[in-house]
Design a protein around this nucleic acid. Structure first.
Lengths: 215, 215
DNA sequence: CGAATACTTGATCCGCATCAAGTGCCGTGG
DNA sequence: CCACGGCACTTGATGCGGATCAAGTATTCG
């Protein structure tokens, strides 16, 4: 369903990539650390080499929402850079992270020289916007159990290597850990999934999809 | 708060704009008509000359959600075009509409020739994504009354010329007409707004903002 | 002017957030 | 190595926000 996500320099000739790579800065973060915080000014584009990063919004009431996810081979921080805005969410390492930061001016230079690069960024933003607006409707239309079914399928499919905590699933689906636990317990009772500790196996994909959007 | 929105060809030299204008197609739509439907293949970019267009998602349960709005001077249809996807929402004329459609191939040609055009599209997508993700958190975190306060302020500020129906406000805020009516009645009782029929006046902007996000 | 649509008010009910009170699990440092 | 603190997980009880249904009035538009 989801198309392959391009890395920052996919499809670029080596003589273009090399100088850009040279001026990038390597960074590592421990699990739980923040790469940047809401309100910070964008420094450049982050290119993930290893680990998992979650974009988290925090409401005034303190509730956290997982709005976007990035894994190795994907880049982020591009939204604020291109919007000309400060970051609208925190970037948090959900697993230990290794990444490169490409400075803003070099990215913009790349755009000027290679229009297809700018078009690539636009494509990524466009797909992310589509997903966000889809969930925007989903959030208020559908029951918690439907959102959890859909969210679980998405999270497991897009990032199977990560052991998703109840808390993360709740933040992603716009609900609470308690509700996720009760919902997962119900799914298990129906034989749709199997959970032992932090490990969740999907046994009946079709049936879960049916839970996500019953007719 | 919202920066000025660029039209399709803002900042472009006349010799560039002229041929593009020439190959665009003028169209008009009556209030309530659809410009395109979810699932349709994108034909090009729509540039609004007059009226108001709403992007509406429809869930399987039949509920409608107003996810984005466009008025004269703004363009739309760019998301699907750049994502390389079919439309993910219906475009509906909320008021009588006059617009031009710029064919896909001409838009893409423009991107190749003028990188700053592609960057402009990326900027618009980036800002729309920011707004969408902000509301994504808002939807499940905040009470209906808070969403209505915030939504009303946004709708009136961004599109003051339009007389917003209770239904449209509900679709925008992710709730029902009944709840909007009750909320607006409460606001009026507190002297925050005045409503006579379809006309709503904001009397105390600051107090309404306070309703939208109490500490 | 008539039909469709928007608006309004009241009654009902239930999904799920919230609070409380635990039990495990894991890593860290004494 | 074990104790301990913190966090993830779990289960139960409670309350209420707001969706839903119903029924009627007011507007708007063709």
């Amino acid at each position: 369903m989801e198309a392959s996500t391009p890395t920052l320099c996919s499809g670029m000739a080596p003589e273009i990539v090399a100088p850009l790579e040279a001026c990038s800065i390597r960074k590592t973060y421990k699990k739980g650390e923040s790469l940047y915080l809401m309100g910070d000014e964008p420094a450049g584009i982050y290119c993930l080499e290893k680990g998992l990063v979650g974009l988290v919004t925090v409401s005034t009431s303190g509730r956290e929402r997982l709005v976007r996810l990035f894994k190795a081979g994907q880049y982020f921080g591009h939204r604020s850079l291109f919007a000309g805005e400060s970051y609208h969410a925190n970037a948090v390492a959900l697993d230990p992270v290794e990444c490169r930061v490409f400075p803003k001016k070099d990215v913009m230079e790349l755009c000027r020289k290679f229009p297809e690069f700018a078009v690539g960024i636009a494509q990524k933003l466009a797909r992310e916007l589509g997903r966000a607006e889809h969930w925007l409707g989903f959030m208020t239309d559908r029951q918690v159990s439907e959102r959890v079914a859909d969210g679980l399928l998405y999270l497991k499919a897009a990032h199977p290597e990560h052991n998703w905590t109840r808390r993360e699933i709740a933040d992603f689906c716009g609900t609470t850990t308690e509700s996720v636990i009760r919902t997962l317990a119900a799914f298990e009772a129906e034989g749709l999934i199997r959970q032992k500790g932090r490990h969740i196996d999907i046994l009946q994909r079709e049936a879960l999809l049916e839970c996500a959007s019953p007719q």
